[in-house]
Design a binder for these strands. Structure first.
Lengths: 349, 349
DNA sequence: TTGAATTGTGCAATCGATTGTCCAATTATT
DNA sequence: AATAATTGGACAATCGATTGCACAATTCAA
């Protein structure tokens, strides 16, 4: 009895209707229906209207699968990101989707969870779905980029953003990390800080190299000698941030300012300093990077470098669609978006 | 010249190879190749191995479009959410993807931006992609649910989470908003608060109704009379939170505690109170809802009700996959996940 | 040895939409 | 009026993988 109910209720109430159903209903051919729906000039207005009306009446919904198979074009772009729950990435996706939908594309999102293996899986999935192009930001632990050849070998347009890879010849969208590092350091210098430390990230990623280089440039420009012990490399997690803070602040030559390569690390430093009774910004000024949603609400609120994930997403999509539609030849553009300093309490002295 | 370069570089370096290429290379038929790749029992081990090797050698990648078209099953689930950049939703997606990928499904995500019209677009997109099932959380301003009939009429499994709709007969996954409201209010009562206000959300959404009802129940249980002016309905934005705070705190009978239906509103109240020199929690205790990433770092840190987006996502996916694979008949389950109180400074008196 | 069962493959149709080519009907040209 | 040009639409192949059915080859039973 239960089976009977479940069978009947699961029965299609409205079977999928195809262009052929419309054709039959109007006694015309399927090709005419197809052309009419695509507004082809070879079909008369009269026929087009008849087709459109019948399509509406029958509740016709095109089957993208069939169309995609035939045209070899899916009007879909794939996105590979480390993790969707990080604000920068989710806003990048919002930007990507915004422009994509406007241009009639849909978006498939895959998360690599910062794992190379997962990233390779994502590539397979997206390729199997025959996406028209791909936007990617590289996983933290990826150091072999072969899986991306699935796309490049077949000339499927590929654009990287934020975490880019020099090894692959593609277009890229990044923020001006170098400048970000520079203005962060110069800001601290302008506040009178003399011993400015920097906690950097994994050195195989451009973004962290560039932030570090920007910092170094500012220090050189202002003739500040750097204590080598004041530059740390860190995975930039909450935990490791604590460890770095401890290391720096308990050293024989503690810094009077720290520029952290991300806000999470800056947060750890604030927590650590509070715990130890170190006053911020009086004893220790802090600047982070990213302007995470929480940074504004920390106490003291965190001075940081703002980067717009949304803008990066939009730009990357713009670039990708240009390539897909062959507007740009095969140029490998690298677009650098601006960053800016947001001054808050953590450096206000 | 440029055109020439761009043409040659865009030429396929590795054309897409199909099962027929494998078949030709081995002088067998396409159907045998297909069966071999699908590990069909009717194909001998010897042939299977030959096919697999040749597939690898040629770099064969199945074309999901063709397969999907034929089998009428895409191994894809669609997700409709208001906005990806809200932490609760992005963690729900992480949960959805986690289980989905484990079971061999991929995920297409659409954002409604809390707009009914966009939500209807999402439905179209997902249907056109012929997803095997859909997980959705309703847009704030949706009050007509007809577009979902595209799925229900065709018996495409549909599961709602968090923002659910009673009008549609589907399975649902929610957190225990009623209990959340109850323990939030009871917590404030236990702290000795007497005049406890509540800022609720749009009353066509179950979650806000339930939080409100939970609050009312707690108040009744402890025989606390409620000033009608102490219950407000709000869109729960940052701006409106300010307005609500002002309204409540400048009234003739200001509350000594506020339970806000989300953390954003609680944040607004904290900011407003700080501005006006109202002490938290001494003069005013505050409890939020959701445990946003920032809530821990506010000062004072925010007492709130924790709900796991990840768990909700996993449960919804579990339910959906059960329906897709017809494990459950057509039962309309509603799963309620637990919430719990996180006590922090904003109510610690 | 003969018929039956089993095993391994191939043929051809199919999913739904698109599109090159062809043809009939209508309109324009001289 | 006769021919050319234009218009509107139909036919059938196609995209790549899957699958019901047919059938040859092999093995088994009696």
């Amino acid at each position: 009895m239960l089976d009977f109910i479940s069978l009947t209720t699961r029965m299609k109430k409205e079977s999928n209707i195809t262009i052929h159903d419309i054709a039959k209903a109007l006694s015309i051919s399927g090709s005419t229906v197809s052309r009419a729906l695509n507004d082809n000039s070879r079909i008369s207005e009269k026929t087009k209207n008849a087709v459109r009306n019948m399509a509406k009446k029958l509740g016709y919904q095109p089957n993208a699968l069939a169309s995609n198979l035939r045209t070899n074009c899916t009007k879909t772009i794939g996105v590979i990101i480390p993790r969707i729950s990080r604000y920068f990435f989710s806003s990048a996706i919002t930007g990507i989707e915004e422009l994509a939908r406007e241009k009639g594309y849909s978006v498939i999102i895959c998360q690599s969870n910062d794992l190379e293996e997962r990233e390779a899986d994502c590539v397979q999935t997206l390729f199997a779905s025959r996406v028209d192009g791909v936007i990617s930001s590289i996983a933290l632990n990826t150091d072999n980029y072969d899986h991306y050849k699935t796309f490049t070998n077949r000339n499927i347009p590929l654009v990287f953003f934020d975490r880019v890879c020099d090894e692959l010849e593609t277009s890229k969208v990044v923020v001006d990390d170098f400048k970000g590092g520079f203005i962060a350091a110069e800001h601290l210098i302008s506040k009178g800080c003399k011993r400015i430390a920097h906690i950097s990230g994994p050195q195989h990623l451009n973004i962290y190299i560039n932030r570090l280089q920007g910092y170094l440039k500012a220090m050189r420009k202002h003739n500040i000698t750097i204590d080598k012990e004041h530059i740390l490399e860190s995975p930039l997690t909450r935990e490791d941030g604590m460890a770095c803070a401890k290391k720096l602040l308990e050293s024989s030559n503690p810094p009077d300012a720290i520029f952290a390569a991300n806000d999470t690390t800056a947060l750890s430093i604030i927590l650590y300093a509070k715990e130890k009774g170190i006053r911020i910004p009086e004893d220790l000024a802090i600047v982070g990077f990213s302007n995470e949603p929480f940074s504004e609400y920390l106490s003291p609120s965190l001075t940081t470098i703002e980067q717009s994930g949304f803008d990066v997403g939009v730009k990357a999509t713009e670039l990708l669609l240009d390539i897909i539609n062959n507007k740009t030849g095969n140029t490998q553009e690298t677009i650098v978006l601006p960053v800016n300093l947001i001054e808050r309490e953590s450096s206000n002295r």
